[in-house]
Design a protein around this nucleic acid. Structure first.
Lengths: 191, 191
DNA sequence: TCCTGAACTTACTTATAAGTAAGTAACTTT
DNA sequence: AAAGTTACTTACTTATAAGTAAGTTCAGGA
């Protein structure tokens, strides 16, 4: 073997992430991972006992990624505007460059068909994300950067919903909708 | 047979609609339709040659439903506020009572795995819906009912995205988010 | 009454899915 | 050098998917 064996697991996870975010849980099979990688399906099962385990790991990893990006702000504060822009840039990148959906979208649509473990992880992620955005909204209003007349939580929920929806509409109507929607989020915050 | 045969096709369509909107194209099978109906899979194939045909009919029917609900306004105008509320009520009903997602969401997530025909129908639907909402925004601003400082199209896009996202978050975080998001849409229009 | 077509069912095919058990090659430890 | 341990492959099972071809039932018309 020329490829270092220790990285196989990482490669599987990377591909699974792309497929899960790009097609949803029911939209891909082990073959979509194994064939392009030049390995056998059983190799995937060696690293991840079941498809459910694999996709749980995908969501876990996504959660960790977001946690590391948002953690500092949650602990130490900072500029809300700066945080918002970082988050918007992250979402923008996922939609336009990676051409994938937020894992939350994919869990939500197939909710009833998914293992409980995945539902739980996704729910936890959505709660974390909302808590983060709520904090950003709170701080932003305190700092007189953002203007809105509802609760920070409600505004955060609305911003999150809008971004989730932007990912969908981008697929249907083209990538240009993303920047329009993001611009409107800023305007609706008085920016 | 006690059941009138002529209604079988309608029953199939009804069930397919629930399943497609509830689980996505890849999240249900013919069995999910035939077993609860007490018919055989082949009976579905008699009315709809392929799964693609069946789901195309589902989206077509949804488009017709929306067209009939929005058509009058598009032709004759009226109160934008009234139209907006009717549309919000429609979306609210779908999320809370029917507990299903907009077909656009389900197409968007599995875009790459779906037949071209379905992609085309969904794209057409999204364009129609956006045109409708754009008109509502335009009229609303002309009538001094709505306030926003971007183009009517951009605002409409943002509202649509927000509602699409609300459907997702409702599944993950509970039904109460829907009314919060809808309330925020009103606030962001100066209502 | 025979015939025809609509609306199915029965019985099948083909493909693909997830998952498993047993074997193997190479590296690691003792 | 012998004995694990890791990271796989080979070969298989079981389940389920969409789709099809041929036969059946019943209602209405000539």
């Amino acid at each position: 073997m020329t490829t270092p064996r220790t990285s196989t697991r990482e490669h599987i996870l990377k591909r699974a992430t792309m497929l899960f975010q790009g097609r949803g849980y029911n939209g891909f099979s082990f073959k979509d991972i194994s064939v392009p990688m030049g390995i056998k399906n059983a190799a995937i099962h060696y690293h991840f006992a079941t498809k459910s385990d694999l996709c749980t790991a995908v969501i876990e990893r996504y959660s960790e990624l977001l946690k590391s990006e948002t953690g500092d702000f949650m602990k130490h504060g900072g500029s809300a505007r700066h945080q918002l822009e970082a988050y918007l840039a992250f979402v923008r990148h996922e939609i336009l460059d990676a051409r994938c959906m937020c894992p939350l979208t994919n869990v939500a649509v197939a909710m009833d068909t998914l293992p409980d473990e995945i539902q739980a992880k996704a729910t936890a992620l959505s709660i974390d994300l909302l808590a983060y955005l709520t904090r950003v909204m709170e701080v932003g209003r305190e700092q007189d950067e953002f203007q809105f007349n509802s609760t920070a939580e409600q505004k955060a929920l609305s911003v999150k919903a809008t971004l989730q929806g932007a990912g969908q509409l981008a697929r249907l109507m083209g990538p240009q909708v993303v920047d329009q929607v993001i611009d409107q989020i800023r305007r609706d915050l008085g920016l």
